[in-house]
Nucleic acid binder design. Structure first.
Lengths: 222, 222
DNA sequence: ACTCACAAACTGACTAAATCACTTAGCCAC
DNA sequence: GTGGCTAAGTGATTTAGTCAGTTTGTGAGT
């Protein structure tokens, strides 16, 4: 069962990106030129590009060009075609985070660098500004994972949280306890700063447990 | 910036799958029929289907049809367009697993059901049969995560390990210590059976640490 | 010299109508 | 029955073109 033409094409296009040293944001050759280069037609090229688009490896900008996407080097990614969200799926997500994140926090307390502490502080304070601020790229829990020094852990957390974006508003609507969140986040940062792994782990666990309880108490959402 | 036609199409196709109650393995309407139904042309339909294919939501079988894929309900998935593997990336992966898996093992020791123990035992014994056996679908570490009762944790581990498949042969070639692996796996299962979370956690940690050391000692691969 | 408007010249988005390649199921001969 | 052939349905790909945005450079007007 030989790989299909469009399969080989995706690999070739990735080869162009890697061999060309292209980084996220850089433009790749136009669909017409790729078609010419590989001696195939544009619909076939577009199929291959769509596959790459689905995984965030490339991005289309109508009229402008095709660009290298932000997650091209990711190992694990959030499913862009997510199933609909239910209260159960939210609780499942929090349960998974309850297993993973405390261990991550402990590791981050050990491995954190001064740069990580800066970003963590920024994430904590940014969360206080009312929504609409542009600096929402910094997510506290993702930055906490980043402080572990392992990009893979950051990817895993980012993927888990990306799925949550859609219902984040719903949770906020039901249980907007920004002040408490802020306090707990700050306490975790302090533990990480002090390189107190045990405390960071335990604070993260109770923080997530608080969120879990809040969601559990909330009514089923639409 | 309105979503492109093929974006809306993917959503519509997912709608057909979900509304039709289709499950992985079931056939979906042919590209020609979808084109007719949405009053568009087949290349456009194919672009949408390719996007769904990239995330494992659908599968093509030339000459036969298009079928619902196994990972359509996944929240997080392994990047099918993985970057090339280096020794560093392998160590990074093991480090991430060293953070996540012990915590997962502890949770599994608490939550495991009789059914999980069966599958774990099967995974342990299957690993002993020489490669070529068909029952390689059971991966010990994935089953260990499954025993936690949280499908999301299973997804995360499966995604992390899927990436590793490509270099699994390389690791095996450098450090084929199947007997030791088997012993350590068996010890973890015993701890999980006894619902001894602390021991399961610690055994998992040392097991992964052994693998890490073996990889570290290995020469750089091609 | 500066700025604004506008017109190419690029780009992606999509259409239309075929042809080729593969799989499956049914039929028929043996 | 069983084997092989055939026909219908499917995905894979081509060809040739139109539509719709974006970027860039040019030139008129100030």
């Amino acid at each position: 069962m030989p790989p299909s033409l469009s399969d080989r094409l995706t690999e070739s296009i990735l080869g162009i990106i890697r061999d060309g040293g292209l980084r996220p944001g850089d433009a790749i050759p136009s669909a017409r030129e790729l078609a010419k280069r590989f001696a195939i037609t544009t619909p076939t090229v577009r199929e291959a590009l769509r596959k790459l688009e689905a995984t965030g490896a490339v991005e289309f900008r109508h009229g402008s060009g095709t660009y290298v996407g932000p997650t091209i080097n990711n190992v694990v990614l959030a499913n862009p075609h997510r199933p609909p969200i239910t209260k159960d799926s939210v609780l499942q997500l929090i349960s998974a985070r309850l297993v993973i994140e405390p261990a991550v926090a402990a590791q981050s307390a050990v491995s954190r660098q001064p740069e990580n502490l800066e970003r963590l502080e920024a994430a904590v304070t940014n969360a206080l500004v009312p929504p609409g601020g542009p600096a929402f790229a910094l997510n506290f829990h993702v930055e906490l994972a980043a402080a572990s020094g392992n990009p893979l852990l950051q990817e895993v957390l980012a993927s888990l949280l990306k799925v949550r974006v859609r219902e984040q508003q719903q949770i906020r609507a039901l249980y907007d306890n920004r002040a408490r969140d802020h306090e707990e986040h700050q306490a975790i940062v302090d533990a990480v700063r002090a390189q107190d792994a045990v405390r960071a782990e335990q604070l993260t666990r109770s923080h997530l447990d608080n969120i879990r309880q809040a969601v559990e108490a909330a009514p089923e959402f639409s």
